[in-house]
Design a protein around this nucleic acid. Structure first.
Lengths: 241, 241
DNA sequence: GAGTGGTCTAGACCACCCC
DNA sequence: GGGTGGTCTAGACCACTCT
């Protein structure tokens, strides 16, 4: 792991160990520089990373400050990993409804940028949070990238397996959200009534090299799902009119 | 504006003018370096910014590539500005239901980190997209920061005014989302039925110096609201177990 | 004015991809 | 092995805040 990542971890550890409160100041850059024996740019890169992660904010001429504790029980919408990493303190289980190989529909082929004759793994499962239905999830894996899945893997954290088991390097994802009413079938799986609210999230996951490899559609129960999102103005608003 | 921002804009312009398609390669860093007459780090910073913005992705040992056109008609959940910047091609209008000054509730005081005796501007309005109700929005502005608002401003893009009119520097925001059923009152404003789905989004906006200055609650109609979100693995998954 | 973060440079060296 | 991005350095200079 690179220095700046290591240092970012150390700084997070520092925040935790010193029980910093929201708005409290971190050591200044020169101090961190001395402490870790690296150049200013490296410290800056660590702090930038923590800023993007929502851990700190930097104020020119003033200092770097802790942004505060993350709310518990909320799923972060940033992060390319499933729920398992997000809800550490909660018990997440899965019930697999369908697990098979098949050819893509046109929609899926398009999202995964593959031909109609490409093989896929299809997984449909219900996820439970503390025994209560959280989401109904259908995923399509490009089998030429995710070469192997079995029932056991599919019952647990598929993303952890993809990363640690297969050693694939996750890159970025595109996510589409909209609110709608549950169909009769969906309601049945989630223990709710037809027509009740759901959040539908469609995600295309890409490897580091830009190749899409999973398309997933998730319907979240309105009773359980709370999401969290932190943003900041990386001069984001700049456009070329 | 700094060089790297300027260059980022130039690169976006290049992508547009050359009609790059998804996955097409951009000039390599050395070329960009020469073209703009700056050091490698500066180019890197521009590309990193574009990567975080979801415009490009970089592959070590291979190159930098265009990530593709943004979907139209979706509201990006990143970005600290209201709808007006997001839905350029659409006609956004507002109907102001309430506009007044008042003291905060306990909830609002907490989110804005102020005392119960602090003055606020309260704005409640319905936003329409192409004449159809999109959202019901209630916002609370810390009056000691947002010193002045009037009916005209409140009918348009409040954020544009805050940035350009008042010259305040927007920083970051915390956003909480959940799906729920419309109350009778909400449904009435949005032209829907009680119990139909909504997306409730609560946001706390902060200035660059970390000071919270607006708290807003928005209820989106399920008929209109489509959201979009791009993420990437800035080594995000790193945690200190 | 002193303190502190932000930008930028020139160059060294490393890690990964692809032929 | 050649091409290309990623990390890191040491230091100069700038911009903002705070008192």
């Amino acid at each position: 792991m690179s220095k700046f990542q290591q240092i970012a971890i150390e700084i997070e550890k520092y925040i935790k160990e010193n029980s910093l409160q929201k708005g409290e100041k971190l050591p200044i850059i020169d101090e961190l520089k001395a402490k870790f024996g690296v150049s200013k740019s490296t410290i800056l890169k660590s702090l930038d990373m923590l800023e993007r992660k929502g851990v700190v904010y930097q104020v020119r001429g003033s200092g770097t400050f802790f942004r505060g504790q993350k709310p518990r029980g909320f799923v972060s919408l940033l992060s390319n990993q499933g729920l398992t990493n997000n809800l550490n303190d909660y018990k997440i289980t899965s019930e697999v409804i369908k697990f098979c190989t098949s050819k893509p529909t046109q929609e899926v082929a398009h999202h995964l940028n593959i031909g109609m004759d490409n093989e896929l793994y299809c997984v449909k499962r219900i996820r439970y949070l503390n025994e209560e239905a959280l989401s109904l999830e259908e995923s399509f894996f490009n089998k030429s990238i995710v070469m192997y899945l079995n029932n056991e893997i599919v019952t647990g954290s598929i993303f952890r397996y993809i990363k640690n088991g297969l050693g694939l390097k996750l890159g970025f994802s595109d996510r589409y959200l909209h609110v709608d009413k549950l169909s009769a079938e969906e309601a049945n799986y989630l223990g709710l009534e037809q027509g009740e609210p759901k959040l539908k999230v469609e995600t295309i996951y890409h490897l580091k090299n830009g190749q899409p490899f999973v398309f997933s559609k998730i319907n979240y129960s309105y009773k359980q799902s709370k999401f969290f999102l932190q943003t900041h103005n990386d001069s984001f608003e700049v456009t070329h009119a």
